[in-house]
Design a protein around this nucleic acid. Structure first.
Lengths: 134, 134
DNA sequence: TTGACTAATGTAATAACATCACATACGAAG
DNA sequence: CTTCGTATGTGATGTTATTACATTAGTCAA
């Protein structure tokens, strides 16, 4: 496995679709966009998404059942802090950020309660600055 | 509106089902449990769930498409801190907690970025203490 | 080269989650 | 009693995700 993940054809197509998009896409939206590239069934999308999630190249937004390309341009293998998302309900823009204090605080809680975390979701839905002033 | 919310028949049935359950239930699981009480269609469940969410009596767990009764026995009208959930992927147990530091930290971010939050989701999935030692 | 194994893909069907559209009932305010 | 808002009943439909099975393609060892 190279520093930057080698992707299969389907994985590339799905990743490119997400990268082109300026916001989150649902699996079925991706499917529609890739029909002309030969995609026929949801599973082709979901399988690629699963791998891309594994590789840390994309994120799933649980609260809206959609996917975004990771906005961190650099390496994905470290930086194990939790990632939070601010999702604008008007324009769909997603802002990704991480906060060491929140990360530490969550870890404290899980440690203190003997809970072994596998995945943590932090999503803030609301109205972004642009949409709020517009 | 009374201190404790007056519920309609359907709302009571759904709330009771969630209260009886020792873990989160999906809307369709609730529907199945309430068939003998006259429930016939998903909408009957979803409408009740919407109201109960409004009243703050239940929570929706976005990452597993399920609902739980709020575990805070006391009043729901104040305590505006964010609520986090630890969800055990083995036994399904959900633990609800709130953390002022996390709440403050999220607020700082949203203020600093001109983002007006409407709903914040924090869900930690993993293995709970009981399941981890068992 | 062949065979065995693993990963990726193609396809249809189905399951699981959620909403729309429209009709009906029922209680409170005037 | 009429009007209005809220709750309800019901069927159809829309959206999201998985199961099951067949096929293709690459890797590696004998």
């Amino acid at each position: 496995m190279a520093a930057t993940q080698e992707l299969t054809k389907n994985q590339s197509l799905v990743f490119d679709a997400l990268t082109r998009a300026d916001g989150p896409l649902s699996a079925y939206t991706i499917l529609d966009q890739l029909r002309e590239d030969g995609f026929r069934a949801p599973l082709q999308v979901y399988r690629a998404l699963d791998k891309l999630l594994d590789y840390g190249m994309i994120h799933r937004l649980e609260s809206i059942n959609a996917f975004v390309a990771c906005s961190h341009p650099h390496d994905h293998s470290h930086n194990h802090g939790m990632i939070a998302f601010a999702i604008c309900e008007k324009c769909g823009q997603v802002t990704e950020f991480s906060d060491d204090v929140i990360t530490a605080r969550v870890r404290e809680w899980t440690k203190g309660n003997g809970f072994k975390p596998s995945k943590t979701t932090i999503e803030i839905r609301g109205i972004c600055a642009s949409c709020g002033t517009a």
